[in-house]
Simulated assay, not measured.
Amino acid sequence: MNKSIAVVLLFCAGLHGTAQATGSLAGQVGVQMVIGAGCTISSGSVSGGINQWGTLDFGTHSDLSNLVDAQTVGANGNIQIKCSTGLTPSLTVNAGLHASGGQRYMKNTATSTIAYNIYSDAARSALIQANTPVDISPASTGNAVSIPLYGRVVPTGQNTPTEAGTYTDTLLVTIAW
């Protein structure tokens, strides 16, 4: 056998043995979190996977001879909306389950209905039309602001006689930014 081949074989045999030295190896792990622009609703709850943002309760009345007003109230008070600065959030309210011809109605278990309107101000002068965005840009200051909905039942113009019973409707409210 050639002497240079024997030396190479002995050298290679030494490489297959166990490690003779101890040591350590350090590395870095990057950590990050991204907060995207968006809005948060507080004072609401979730039921069956659906956000519950409050109730517009007109109360109990014996007739419709007077104006009846209501304001949304959430589980823990008024609904609070807080959006990232720089956004232009808007609120849209659909027509409800029983609307007809652009008018929202509450309906009882029979067939009677009570017409009502939704407003964005306490004076009830800024009517919220179905599916028409309402500017809620004050919510984009980074601070939580209250965004109540105001309702009104007007005694004139009711198209059906009111029967005793509970009248209800469900509105879908969407916050977009």
Rank of each mutant, 00 (worst) to 15 (best):
Lys3Met: 11
Val154Gln: 14
Val68Met: 09
Leu67Ala: 14
Asn76Tyr: 07
Ala110Leu: 11
Ile79Arg: 03
Cys83Trp: 07
Leu64Arg: 13
Val73Asp: 02
Ser47Glu: 15
Leu56Thr: 05
Asp69Glu: 13
Ile81Met: 10
Thr40Asp: 07
Ala70Phe: 07
Gly74Arg: 00
Asn66His: 10
Ser47Gln: 15
Ala139Trp: 13
Asp121His: 10
Leu87Thr: 02
Arg104Ala: 08
Asn94Glu: 05
Thr162Gly: 11
Leu64Asp: 03
Gln32Phe: 04
Thr92Tyr: 01
Asp121Glu: 05
Gln80Phe: 07
Ile35Lys: 05
Gln158Lys: 05
Asn159Arg: 13
Ser84Val: 00
Asn66Glu: 12
Ala75Arg: 12
Tyr167Arg: 01
Ser90Ala: 10
Gly36Asp: 08
Arg124Gln: 14
Asn131Gln: 06
Ser140Cys: 02
Val29Tyr: 03
Thr162Tyr: 09
Tyr167His: 01
Ile147Phe: 12
Leu91Lys: 05
Tyr105Asp: 01
Asn94Arg: 06
Asp121Val: 07
Ser24Asp: 12
Ile175Phe: 03
Gly96Ile: 09
Ser90Glu: 05
Gly49Ala: 02
Thr85Lys: 02
His61Gln: 11
Val154Pro: 04
Val145Glu: 15
Thr160Gly: 13
Ser120Arg: 12
Ile41Gly: 00
Val46Lys: 05
Ser100His: 09
Ser24Trp: 06
Tyr167Glu: 01
Ala176Leu: 04
Gly101Phe: 09
Asn94Pro: 05
Leu56Pro: 05
His61Lys: 11
Leu64Trp: 07
Val29Ala: 11
Val173Ile: 11
Gly44Pro: 00
Glu163Asp: 15
Gly30Asn: 08
Asn76His: 09
Tyr167Pro: 01
Gly30Asp: 14
Ala115His: 02
Asp57Tyr: 01
Leu64Gln: 06
Thr113Trp: 06
Val145Ala: 14
Gly102Met: 12
Leu9Lys: 15
Leu127Val: 07
Gln52Phe: 10
Cys12Leu: 15
Thr92Met: 04
Asn78His: 04
Ser137His: 08
Val145Leu: 14
Leu127His: 06
Ser140Asp: 04
Leu10Gly: 14
Trp53Ala: 05
Pro133Arg: 04
Leu64Ile: 08
Ser90His: 05
Ala75Lys: 14
Ala99Tyr: 09
Ser24Phe: 08
Ala21Leu: 13
Ala110His: 10
Pro161Ile: 14
Phe58Pro: 02
Thr85Asp: 00
Arg124Trp: 08
Ala115Tyr: 01
Ser65Glu: 10
Asp135Cys: 04
Ile50Asp: 05
Ala130Ser: 15
Thr166Leu: 15
Thr72Glu: 06
Ile128Ser: 07
Ala70Thr: 07
Ala110Arg: 10
Val31Trp: 00
Val7Asn: 11
Ala130Ile: 10
Arg152Trp: 08
